[in-house]
Design a protein around this nucleic acid. Structure first.
Lengths: 230, 230, 230, 230
DNA sequence: TATGAATGAGATTTCATTCAT
DNA sequence: TATGAATGAAATCTCATTCAT
């Protein structure tokens, strides 16, 4: 009763998700709060696996050992549940990003640190990346979910903006390359999340590839093998 | 070649296209092949916009000014229509790729040529990229669509394999970097398709960024080591 | 016991029962068990009248003053509803058979008692016989209903086997006639159910005919040989 | 071309049906006539197997190597095709009955001769009995098919009426047993067609049982073994 | 806080039928 | 005589949501 640990149904394949410790002041409606937490985690897995349309309240409710009617006590609609899951997932990711960010590093190292953080998160709970990848698609599709996409995009942009700013200040990024770096980051993060997050070893290799690319070591100019650093 | 894309009335979000009442029986002067082609194009757009689950036969049929029953004359099921659209889209893309490929170019140039081809295709018909991006997600979700995914993946892998091989032979790609280049390509193509193909100018900028990254010019090592290899 | 059969308005042939608009949500004072019982009775009538294929969920739901969706709350599919009706009907019949069976009677009397029981059942609820007659045909047609047919056949065979056994023991049935009596019973029961159960007075006459046939009094050898065996 | 033999598609399981030789005067629309004949035979098999509702024009057309549209050249509707099949089947049966009927026989022998004729017909083309059994059910179900049922019933009743009349005249049937014999015949014919015609050896046994029943030999009175003939 | 029993809207699919060719 | 390309009506089933309990 006092333990807020999430109970997951045995069949639920979705990862448990590391929750940041919540401070427990007075325990009003503790149960409701816990149930909500459990629903968010379960729903994330289902949405990740099936997508917004194909996910059904019934499957989520079943995994939570409830009826669909009970869902409506905690969330006023499917849409609201989805958005709540989305906000929760986004918070988890950016909270982690903030935690691992070391502003004293070089731009490239900071970026790679972030990529490693996504790797670690994926290890801890694969549904996070899966959900966020799926959400990109789902949000585009449903007008009623778009608003959340916009918030999220700005969230992300602001975050990477800071890193890029630092890179520009330190001289790593030529000012005229600012915009290029930004789309590069966007493409790489999206691509890795969407196409590679299913296989952790490939995901890791992709991080290595990005490191090489940023270092200019991925490919050499042809012919006149401009040997660098000798 | 620049086919006349179906015009969707702006307000028409779903199922709005009202079919003008037509009489029973065979319509005059209509050939199945043309209708099939039209359906593929229309369906591609709808699948791209809504995804497999959310797309309805009704919307597709409405846009083609038919009944849903008529759809079933041309395709035996929703799934078959989807797969037909998929094969058609894939063929269009790889046909174009083959057309523009110049094997005498350097690896980087070949890769960039391919990226430019995606850009051009996107210009001619944005639904192609949108559909293929959406398909990546949809296929993951539906077991019954997976088989087609596998074919497609191998198709893509083989294509880029050839370019990479050429790069290795020419010395641009160090043999030990082979695998890195491959995941890099996968991530970049997926990321650009999924996250950037909605805005052509940003898409173009991403191509520029990739060029810079391959040339080692996107970022510089921090601080002092400004001049590389000279 | 004489359950209040559902009244179908005479003109209502199919789908005519218009459900009075009821509000959303749970209706007050309704229990699933009662609804289920009502559905079984209504569905039996509809299946009897139309057969499995031609019977529609809509007609059943209309007669029960529900939506078709509500049907699915009680039975997971049309097939399941049908089989439930079948099991229910079979149980009603054989329960009655067991009730009226008097093993101290002669074989002929036991058989006639059973026939009278079918007559009484038909009086109380004609849909029972009608359904079971129709089911014989429907089951042959649909592979997916066959399994239930097998169970039922064995049920019936076992029941009559017992009566026949008794007849053999008492000497009424010559051991070599065992198999003949068995097919005779099958044919007569099936024939009476299928062809005569629509008219109770004819049905009664058929019972009388069977009594006469078993007593050897239905027909006499032709012409002179009036006294048999001389 | 000159051979009017019915071509049956390899998959068509339905028996070929013995057609009485048609006299071929001038051959106007010979092909249409043959096609019609072929369709009747094929349709009979399909209706027998699936029943009226579940049988589709498509299946019939496929087996006849045609399109459904072509069906409509020969029969104006599904209903008409069905009724045509029915009339044809009935004619085949009663034609055979007339052929085998020997009015000099005793009533019992005439009846058994008829039963043997059904057995032979079943041997030659099982779809005949299957169709007629199924038709009994289908006709009851569809108001629009009822009319044909009535005709058929009277047809049958008249036929057996004649045999029974002869039995009454010869003294085999007591005048007061007339009605009993009639329902007995109806029940037995129906029961054998519906429940036993799938297995020829059981069907034969049923004929034997009827013979025994009519002879008063199927069962003996219990106990006081009223030994007849003493 | 949750369940139980429903609704209404809509999806995919099937099928008899039509009419130009 | 037949095919080809459609229609319209309906059927089964699913699902988000509701409201009494």
């Amino acid at each position: 009763m006092a333990d807020p640990r999430i109970q997951r149904s045995p069949g639920a394949s979705a990862g448990a998700g590391i929750r940041p410790a919540r401070k427990l002041g007075r325990p009003p409606q503790v149960k409701a709060h816990d149930t909500r937490r459990r629903l968010l985690d379960i729903a994330r897995g289902v949405y990740a696996e099936r997508g917004y349309e194909a996910a059904t309240n019934k499957e989520i409710a079943d995994l939570a050992f409830m009826t669909t009617a009970a869902l409506y006590y905690h969330f006023p609609s499917k849409r609201d549940l989805y958005l709540a899951v989305h906000d929760d997932a986004r918070d988890q990711v950016y909270t982690r990003f903030e935690e691992v960010l070391d502003t004293s590093q070089s731009f490239a190292d900071q970026f790679l640190t972030i990529l490693m953080a996504t790797h670690d998160l994926n290890e801890e709970d694969p549904t996070l990346a899966q959900f966020l990848a799926a959400a990109r698609t789902d949000m585009k599709r449903r007008m009623d979910l778009q608003q959340a996409l916009l918030e999220r995009a700005s969230h992300r942009d602001q975050f990477f903006e800071r890193i890029i700013d630092a890179g520009v200040r330190s001289g790593e990024i030529a000012p005229e390359n600012r915009a290029l770096v930004q789309v590069f980051i966007t493409a790489v993060i999206a691509g890795m999340t969407d196409a590679l997050s299913d296989d952790q070893s490939i995901h890791l290799r992709a991080i290595e590839a990005v490191r090489a690319a940023l270092a200019g070591d991925l490919v050499q100019p042809p012919k006149t093998r401009r040997k660098r650093a000798s």
